[in-house]
Amino acid sequence: MSDHCILCQTVGGKLIYQNDFIRIINAQEPHYPAFTRVILQQHQVEMTDLPHQDRQRLMDYVYLVEQVQRDILQPYKINLAQFGTMVPHIHWHIIPRYQEDLHYPASIWSQSDKDMNAPDYLTFLEKQHTFLETYHQTLQERLHQFDSKTTK
């Protein structure tokens, strides 16, 4: 744990699930309601700082989140990202993408020339919010199942 790391000091978003190894949060990005992060509980900066077994375990969680997003949200594409430039603590972004989203096809961190108040866009965004409860609930169930299988 680091006294200077925001991910060591705060949850980092709305908590969906945690155990002693990871926590999974909703990033609470207004235009990307299901934007999810998998955050390593221990303070490590780079993936290669982890033993091979822990790297694989972390990625298993990332892939599980991706699969639940595909199953429940049915996005056009999913973006996986692990930067850590601004927050040097291992965490992965799992972002469902749709052709209707505000930044498509560019990165969500890019400038958008789309109108965020357009009726079609607002309808799309409202529809995304309707899936959140089911997505979070399904994700929690599958994470519990995964943890019960891997800790035996």
Rank of each mutant, 00 (worst) to 15 (best):
S112H: 09
A34V: 09
R37G: 13
D20K: 04
Y63F: 14
L15G: 14
W109G: 03
Q99L: 05
D54N: 11
V68D: 03
T134P: 00
C5D: 11
T150W: 10
T85R: 01
Y104Q: 04
D60L: 10
A81T: 06
F83E: 08
D71W: 06
F35S: 01
T151L: 12
P51E: 11
M59T: 06
C5L: 09
E141G: 02
E133A: 11
I24S: 08
Y135T: 06
F21C: 04
L122M: 06
I108C: 02
Y104R: 00
N79H: 02
T130D: 02
S110V: 03
Y98F: 15
Q99F: 04
T10E: 13
D20I: 04
R37Q: 11
I78C: 00
L73R: 05
I25Y: 00
T130L: 06
L58K: 03
A118K: 01
Q53L: 11
F146R: 09
P30L: 04
L139I: 09
Y98K: 08
Q99C: 02
Y61L: 13
D115F: 02
A106N: 11
A27R: 12
Y104L: 02
L7G: 12
D20T: 06
Q140S: 08
Q140N: 14
L143I: 03
E126G: 15
Y135I: 05
Q137H: 14
Q128A: 05
Y104T: 03
P75K: 05
L50M: 00
Q145R: 08
M86D: 13
E133C: 02
L7R: 10
S2T: 12
E66K: 12
V11G: 08
L80H: 12
N19A: 05
V11P: 01
T36C: 11
M116R: 08
L15P: 13
L64A: 02
H136W: 15
Y76P: 05
Y61T: 10
R23I: 04
R55N: 08
T10S: 13
E100M: 11
T151A: 15
K149N: 12
Q18K: 12
D3K: 15
H52P: 09
T10W: 01
H4F: 15
L80R: 05
N79M: 02
V68P: 02
L40D: 06
K114Y: 05
V11N: 06
S107P: 01
L143A: 07
E66N: 01
I72F: 00
V68C: 01
M86A: 12
Y32D: 06
E29N: 15
H129R: 15
Y135L: 10
Q41T: 15
K14S: 15
M59Q: 13
Q137S: 13
E46R: 12
F21A: 03
P96S: 03
H89I: 07
C5W: 10
K152Q: 14
C8I: 03
Q9L: 14
Q137C: 13
N117Y: 10
C8P: 07
P88Y: 01
Q82F: 00
L7Q: 11
